[in-house]
Amino acid sequence: MEQVNNISISGMNNTETIVEISNLKKSFGNQKVLKDVTLQLYKGENLVVLGKSGSGKSVLIKCIVRLLNPDEGSIRVLGEDVSVIKREELSNLRMKIGFLFQSGALYDSMTVKENLEFPLRRIKKKMTQKLIDEKIAEVLENVGLLDVLHKMPSQLSGGMRKRISLARTIIVDPQIMLYDEPTTGLDPVTSDEISLLINQVQKKYKTSSIIITHDIECARATADRLVMLHEGQVYKNGKIGDYENSDDPFIKSFFKG
């Protein structure tokens, strides 16, 4: 296994830890998915978690928002231990986290507008309809889709669904963004557009992000730092250049086809 580096983020002034995962273990029956994962997300950075399918990437971010409960280890998000906090505190914490699902997860029975209103009405309860409409227009403009407001999700293409899903996630101004395979199933052009949007979201909303992917182009475009997961463990932690210049056969096979 390649050395696991505890690196600082050069070029970034702030190294405040936003998410701290320590010795995380998670199994499903006899299958050990995460064996011992330790990593940190620093303020303002885009951390890309790379790995083959089945390496436990999605399980990792689902543990961060406690959609899955870890077997062992701790996850601290914005200073709070996710695995022990009460449901109400968890709910408050989740308001600060945006989660872009692999499938987009738009609500099929609602229009695009209703999908965007849904989290706003629950998280920012005192917002007037005028402010809600303004916010919806703002996020739709950010994702470049102003003319789909009254369409149903079934009327949208895969790329459009991802964009609307991203709009629904950023509409509540999250501090942390978790992207689960944001470019999976998209053509290269749309994938590039989504990668660009991820960077724009980081700059505009000052978010700290974890991007789960096995798409090297997406990783190149978005990563401030990369963590590679292999067989449920952190295989390497470093900058994109460290990976591209690595002699490790596994990393080479990943980066050079």
């Binding site: 959609l67 989660f99 609500y107 099929d108 989290p119 509540v172």
Partner: peptide
């Protein structure tokens, strides 16, 4: 069931609903 499969229930849960 289809909401579960397409992660809509998870999406609802993480948006504090």
């Amino acid at each position: 069931g289809s909401m579960k499969v397409t992660e809509q229930i998870d999406a609802m849960e993480v948006s504090s609903t």
